[in-house]
Structures are given as C-alpha cells and as structure tokens.
C-alpha cells in the first residue's frame, strides 16, 4: 500500500536475488533470445586471511555432493589472468546449475568469506535480434551477479580487451531480464565487465 517511493523490494539475501534467474532463463529461452545455459562460474579472491577459503578446492566435493541438496553438477577450478579463482560449474539442468552456484557462494559467504566473493557468472548464447535488424546469433553473453550489490546485469563482450563490449545489446537484454522479474542493477556505472572469462 505504501509502495510510493520504492517500485520493487530489494532482495534480502542471495537466494532471493538469484532464484528469479530460473524464470528469466525460461522466458528468454522461450522468446528465442537465448539458447539454454549450461555453465556458470563463481569468482572469488584468496588473500591468505581465511583458512576455509585457502582450502576451498578441497572442500568443493563435500559442498556440492554431500547432504540432501546434492546435485550432479560437475566442476573445474581455474585461475584467471587477474589472479582470481574461479569455480566453473556445468550442469545440463539449469535449475541444478543455479542451485549449485548458490550453494558454492553460500558456503564461501557463511565461512567468513563474504568479502572474498566477487561475482557469479551465468553463460548464455544470444540468439535474438537487436533493434529488429542485426541478428546476433550465437553471441556469447553473460549474466553477472554481483554479491556486493545483490543484483544482476548482462555482459556481452566483443573482444578480449577491457572496454570491448556491446552496450546496445546489453541494454536490450537487461530490459527483457528486468521484465521477467530479475533484479537488474539500476546503476549502469556498476555494470563492470569481466574480460577473459576462463570458460
């Protein structure tokens, strides 16, 4: 009733922010804008201040495969050129993929590594049209989730150099993603890119 000043609720936790991507993926896939996503990555940094984070590669098996919420998601550990660590997750079932991304992020966060978490990245292949003319079939597109802002934004790199990105496509995608219920970062200046994603 008193929603005059806020148009939407901001998510209270990571799950509340991440879960709507299930609907977004379905809506955009059915619209023919994206092809089904199978891969995602969680980026974190190691600074030697947290034993759990330092030892994370040995913990992932138990994080992913032990307990009631265990999935068949496969994973790989990768380092990138900027010195960050990536947990690359792959699963043919998007729901399981999302759940695994959340689980990994949540374990890092609840073990004192909240500040080590940088982002979760979902990979899509763009198959839509931009402004009704340029068909960008199969363009690699990412949906970045920033843990510090609890919000998503699309990222369409056009090259490996910092700054190479297709801003117009990102704006179109963000609009559709927002309409499907995803919490899109409202400050465009916060849509930082990730060049050289190692998957």
């Amino acid at each position: 009733m008193f929603r005059i000043f806020t148009s939407h609720k901001s998510p209270k936790n990571d799950w509340e922010a991440i879960e709507p991507i299930l609907r977004t993926e379905k809506v955009l896939r059915e619209k023919g804008e994206i092809t089904p996503a199978r891969r995602a990555g969680v980026i974190y940094r190691v600074n030697g201040a947290n034993a759990f984070i330092d030892n994370l590669p040995n913990e992932i098996d138990s994080i992913l495969y032990d307990g009631a919420g265990s999935t068949k998601t496969s994973y790989q550990l990768k380092d990138d050129s900027v010195g960050m660590k990536w947990i690359v997750l792959e699963d043919g079932n998007f729901q399981d993929l999302v759940s695994s991304v959340y689980t990994v992020g949540n374990s890092i966060s609840s073990n004192g590594g909240k500040n080590n978490l940088i982002a979760a990245v979902f990979e899509f292949y763009f198959s839509g049209e931009i402004n009704g003319k340029t068909k960008k079939l199969g363009l690699r597109t990412y949906c970045i989730y920033r843990y510090d802002r609890r919000a998503f934004y699309p990222f369409v790199p056009t090259g490996d150099k910092e700054g190479d990105r297709d801003r117009a496509s990102e704006a179109v995608l963000a609009n559709d993603m927002r309409k499907s219920g995803l919490n899109i970062e409202t400050a465009l200046t916060e849509w930082m890119g990730l060049w050289g994603i190692p998957f």
Binding site: D80, V82, I118, A119, R167, L188, T189, E190, G193
Partner: peptide
C-alpha cells in the same frame, strides 16, 4: 544512458576497492 556502462573490469575494481575508502565506482 548506454555510455554510462563502464569500460572497467569488475575484478580490478574490486581489488582496488580493498585499499580505498571511497568506492572507485562512486568516484567514476
């Protein structure tokens, strides 16, 4: 509006922010 989408890499910004009081993203 689209021009506001930055050229910076998120990882570099986050590393820099670890040493800054004012967020680089606020400054820029």
């Amino acid at each position: 509006t689209i021009a506001q989408i930055p050229d910076q890499d998120l990882r570099k910004m986050q590393t820099a922010n670890a040493f800054l009081i004012i967020s680089a993203s606020l400054k820029n």
